[in-house]
Structure formats: C-alpha cells, structure tokens
C-alpha cells in the first residue's frame, strides 16, 4: 500500500514537471507576447497543481498538505494576475498580435 502511494506520487510529480517543460517550450517557441503568456500561465498552473498533489501524497501530516495547497493557490493567483497585467500592458502599448493561419 505504501509502495503504491509512493509510486503514484512520483508518477504525478513527473507529469507535473513535464507540464513545466511544455510550458517553457511554448514560451520559447510561440511567436508573440500573448501566445507565450498562454503557455506560461496555463502550463505552470497545471504543473504546480500536479506537483503539489504529488507532494501531498508524501507529506507527513495534513497541516503540511494545507500549506502546500495554499502555495498552489498563491502561485495560481499570482500567475493569473501577473499574466493579465503583462498582457494589458502589451496591449496598451500597442503590441500587435500575430494573426491568422498556422504559424
């Protein structure tokens, strides 16, 4: 039982880390500020969520789990707000998005 939980925790965390990598790849490959923000915000949110979930499975004591969930919530709020602020700033300064077809 303990082994199953350990394996599940590591599996979930590897998955979470893969999302971090995918987000970073998107941030390097995508053509403009807005699309890069998409990659950063969503992939990081999910990656962090999965990491926190994996860690919660290993954490001794539920108070620590609460703390981990709180970190996730803070990262999420910070991510969403700063993503919005950067996008708004780019928009106000007139940064044009890439348009149309497959880029």
């Amino acid at each position: 039982m303990e082994g199953v939980r350990e394996a599940l925790a590591v599996g979930v965390m590897v998955l979470g880390a893969l999302f971090f990598v995918a987000g970073s790849v998107g941030m390097l490959r995508f053509p403009d500020v807005y699309t890069r923000l998409h990659a950063l915000t969503k992939a990081d949110n999910l990656g962090m969520g999965l990491l926190v979930f994996g860690l919660s499975l290993q954490a001794p004591g539920w108070q620590l789990v609460l703390k981990l969930v709180l970190i996730w919530i803070f990262v999420m709020i910070a991510g969403a707000i700063s993503c919005h602020l950067v996008a708004r700033e780019a928009y106000r300064q007139g940064v044009k998005p890439e348009q149309g077809g497959d880029l």
Partner: peptide
C-alpha cells in the same frame, strides 16, 4: 497548450 507547444507544427490561430 502543452499539446500545441510540443507538436512539431504548432496549431495557432491567435
């Protein structure tokens, strides 16, 4: 978004 980032031809119509 991870799928779009990792696929060789990125499908973006932003």
């Amino acid at each position: 978004v991870a799928w779009r980032a990792m696929s060789p031809r990125m499908r973006l119509r932003p």
